[in-house]
């Protein structure tokens, strides 16, 4: 049953990533060069919509809170994120979008995946060296801005409050998405 879910969700996610342009490294790099904000607008909207739905459906009991997975905020998250950013700019791919792009027949995506497998392996090799180091210092732990209300009985009081804050964050992200220009034509002219 889980594997059928995996096939369904994986295909859906891959299809959507391709159709929104996330698997096209040119669109990613144009976003990082602050020339084309299509992808940033899309992702901001996606996070806003999914977040709001999550906080709406959870107290109603439609989503099992046990399905959530909050990752710890550690120093390694920021350093790892920074290293990832360098590679992201160089290749224009991230782990998921490279897989999607390889499905479209892009050879550079396959090369990225090979580099990625090596990078993940290199990380496993040095993992024992850093796993007990300062890199794993907590900065806030599993903190989240809006705590999940697991208790459906408290829907009236607390959950409306949580939904309001989550909704506020979502609204903020949506407003940013609308305000960003689709294209920064001034900068695009440099190249075209």
């Amino acid at each position: 049953m889980n594997l059928i879910t995996a096939v369904f969700l994986g295909t859906l996610f891959g299809f959507v990533l391709q159709k929104i342009g996330a698997a096209n490294p040119r669109i990613v790099v144009d976003m990082l060069l602050l020339r084309n904000f299509h992808l940033m607008k899309s992702i901001l909207a996606a996070i806003a919509i999914s977040s709001f739905l999550l906080y709406l459906l959870m107290p109603m009991g439609a989503i099992d809170p046990a399905h959530l997975k909050i990752k710890s905020a550690l120093i390694s998250v920021m350093i790892g994120g920074g290293i990832l950013g360098i590679g992201w700019a160089m290749a224009g791919y991230c782990p998921g979008t490279a897989l999607v792009a390889s499905g479209t027949g892009r050879v550079d995506a396959l090369v990225f995946i090979m580099g990625g497998l090596l990078g993940a392996m290199a990380n496993s090799v040095v993992y024992s060296a850093y796993s007990n180091s300062w890199l794993y210092t907590e900065i806030g732990g599993r903190l989240k801005i809006v705590d999940m209300g697991h208790n459906t009985e408290s829907f009236i009081s607390d959950d409306y409050y949580r939904l309001a804050i989550a909704g506020f964050i979502s609204a903020f992200l949506i407003i940013v998405a609308f305000m960003l220009p689709e294209r920064n034509t001034e900068k695009l002219d440099d190249l075209s």
């Binding site: 994120g81 090369v111 990625g116 090596l118 990078g119």
Partner: peptide, 8 residues
């Protein structure tokens, strides 16, 4: 890029 992305 792939190496750095996955290492990070």
């Amino acid at each position: 890029g792939g190496f750095l992305v996955l290492f990070g």
